[in-house]
Design a binder for these strands. Sequence first.
DNA 1: CATCTAGCTAAAGTGAATACAAGCCAGAGG
DNA 2: CCTCTGGCTTGTATTCACTTTAGCTAGATG
Lengths: 166, 166
Amino acid sequence: MQTSTIRLTGPLDPRGGWAAANCPIARTLDLVGTRSALLLLREAFYGTTRFADFAERVGISEPVAAARLRELADHGLVERVPYQEPGQRTRMEYRLTDKGADLFPALVALMQWGERWLGPAGVELRHHECGHPVRATLTCTAGHQPAIADVDLVLRSSRATAPGTP
Amino acid sequence: MQTSTIRLTGPLDPRGGWAAANCPIARTLDLVGTRSALLLLREAFYGTTRFADFAERVGISEPVAAARLRELADHGLVERVPYQEPGQRTRMEYRLTDKGADLFPALVALMQWGERWLGPAGVELRHHECGHPVRATLTCTAGHQPAIADVDLVLRSSRATAPGTP
DNA sequence: CATCTAGCTAAAGTGAATACAAGCCAGAGG
DNA sequence: CCTCTGGCTTGTATTCACTTTAGCTAGATG
């Protein structure tokens, strides 16, 4: 065993017969697994709300932006909100829902990986109040920051919830 | 301004003219932006090392597994290591490098998002020593866990590094 | 009423990612 | 030397993300 794999416990080890079909990573990728979807979410985090801005800033064509934003809206990651500027007709803007905003750690993790391993792009996240860099890190609910080798993957048997989890 | 966007500072606000071309998220997705690549990395974290196991457990065809693993190896996320079981010929196995292992927080973030928003798949990560659930969270180097609205996106001007950053 | 614009939609085509089927190769066992 | 098995490679076909181009629509403006 090396240090970059997690430990499998219970019925997962040996894990020959585990169904990867309901793997939560795979199911998440079914929704946001395309480049355009993740980059649209990035733009939404940057505060972009309008259709044309999404298409232009992500660098995708309008048909793709329309299709992807519709998918994200259908799945509840963004919501279409009517708004009206004075002297303008009513328009739609796209705003992140809680469900969409909850993907922020994933985007931050991808961002910091790119910064670290593909050369600095010159962008950085900082905590507004203290100014320190913000990272996506593994933290257990007791406050530790475990290494990969200290992480267990366990199968929950239906109702058994972990300490501190609703 | 709402609570699910980060604050843009400096030349990014207003951000009309920022080049998304060198966005670290986009560059990361160029390497691991396909479903098969991320699921192969998931399998590597689960401890899978052998070609046929990768293809079967991820649920992709062997040609795709071969192509994707070669890409991951070319970019240094996995390495091909010869090994020999007693009485067997020399074979190759694929092992995560530090570069590949550093994507773990991203996968954990995607995993926990799927668990939370797409219904529980029944898998959970726990800290081996204390047993508490492990999460991918945003943490600044001072130890705070900022909300999205408390995160600034800043442009670093070449050599200016943040406090505490190498 | 005619025009203009933001916000899309429709149609056609390209290239990449994937599946499926088949075959190749290197060596250990017989 | 023949076979078997793990680790691929080489087809062919399909699906899907995406691009390009073009057009449509609701309402503000002239």
